[in-house]
């Protein structure tokens, strides 16, 4: 099966970087998930090589399009040669629609952010994402698991064993933590505390993020935290309805980006601005092995006005491939990948 067309989706999140290789029929043929570790560029390169190897097992992959998403989407696009750069909300919604076509509510909790997306008839009609506070996201659960001496993978199973979840103050993670310490000292079991924490986080999510939204089934729960069975059950209890966790729940952002790349390639993309490149639709993909290439970023403070913007420059083999960070047009250049 030589010359297999694939679409790459790259989701660079605050905690993990996910890369997916998708076949034109939507099947995921290769995927990796790495911790971002504060070194997104290096991890993107490593992940890309790994996905390239996984895909090669099914024939020489021919990349037809690359989509990037997540907080590091611009960096990923500059580095890898991205064709579509999309925000996480659209990417997650598109992926959820492909997995569960009639989905009306997407609950997404990742490493440091959480979102709720409301869809009707296959179109996003409302959304919200946390902006100020990372309460109840994956990082917090990780930390609490570590503090209780638990593997994060046991966390959910443990919560399911609870018979009488403890009520924990969930508005603020700092206070949630002190309340948990208190509940431990009073003598509650770890199972009940863990289950109580799940309930508190779900309560917090529904009261703040999803406040005033019409949450209707089918519900899809995705993002890394969806692996936590305790959280799934807490959502099901609070919503009074089954919550679907898709098979690739942790990869949905990257999967969505790959689907968007395919839409772009096939000229079905929906975007606000006509990009002008749509007709040719030739991918900018630079190849799977970027580790051979010299990749650097550097930053400087612009001295043009009192804003003193920090300008980031991205170099590949000594050539400037992208530059961003300015409030004005002074440092703009055409090589920067336009938002699709």
């Amino acid at each position: 099966m030589a010359g297999q067309h694939v679409y790459l989706g790259i989701d660079v999140g605050s905690v993990t970087t996910k890369i997916v290789g998708m076949l034109p029929d939507g099947e995921i043929a290769g995927a990796v998930c790495l911790e971002t570790l504060g070194q997104p560029a290096r991890q993107i390169m490593r992940g890309l090589t790994a996905v390239g190897e996984a895909l090669s097992r099914r024939g020489t992959p021919v990349v037809a399009g690359v989509g990037t998403t997540g907080s590091g989407r611009n960096l990923a696009a500059a580095l890898v040669g991205g064709d579509v750069v999309k925000n996480e909300i659209t990417a997650h919604a598109v992926a959820a629609l492909h997995q569960v076509p009639g989905v009306r509510t997407v609950l997404e909790i990742g490493g440091q952010d959480s979102k709720v997306i409301v869809l009707r008839d296959g179109v996003v009609v409302d959304f919200a994402m946390n902006t100020v506070c990372a309460a109840g996201t994956g990082s917090f659960l990780d930390r609490q698991a570590a503090r209780l001496g638990l593997d994060i993978r046991e966390f959910g199973r443990l919560a399911l064993r609870s018979t009488r979840p403890v009520r924990i103050a969930g508005r603020c993670t700092v206070f949630a933590e002190s309340d948990m310490v208190h509940k431990q000292q009073v003598g509650h079991s770890v199972e009940d505390i863990v289950a109580g924490l799940c309930r508190a986080l779900v309560r917090n999510y529904l009261n703040n993020l999803a406040k005033g939204k019409d949450l209707e089934p089918p519900f899809v729960f995705q993002g890394g935290v969806a692996a936590n069975a305790g959280m799934v059950r807490a959502f099901e209890e609070a919503l009074g309805h089954e919550v679907i966790v898709p098979e690739h729940h942790a990869l949905m952002g990257a999967y969505g980006a790959a689907i968007l790349a395919q839409e772009w390639r096939e000229g079905r993309g929906v975007s606000g601005r006509r990009s002008g490149r749509d007709e040719a639709a030739l991918t900018r993909f630079r190849g799977f092995d970027l580790r051979e290439r010299d990749f650097r970023t550097s930053a400087f403070d612009c001295d043009g006005c009192p804003n003193e913007c920090e300008i980031i420059e991205v170099f590949l083999d000594g050539a400037l491939v992208a530059r961003w960070g300015g409030r004005c047009r002074r440092w703009e250049r055409d090589t920067a990948v336009p938002p699709a």
């Binding site: 409301v118 869809l119 009707r120 008839d121 179109v123 009609v125 409302d126 959304f127 919200a128 994402m129 946390n130 902006t131 100020v132 506070c133 309460a135 703040n208 993020l209 005033g212 939204k213 019409d214």
Partner: peptide, 14 residues
């Protein structure tokens, strides 16, 4: 396609 009705205000959150 029948226009999907908007549902409340988007974007906000804590």
């Amino acid at each position: 396609v029948r226009p999907p009705a908007a549902r409340g205000t988007a974007g906000a959150g804590t």
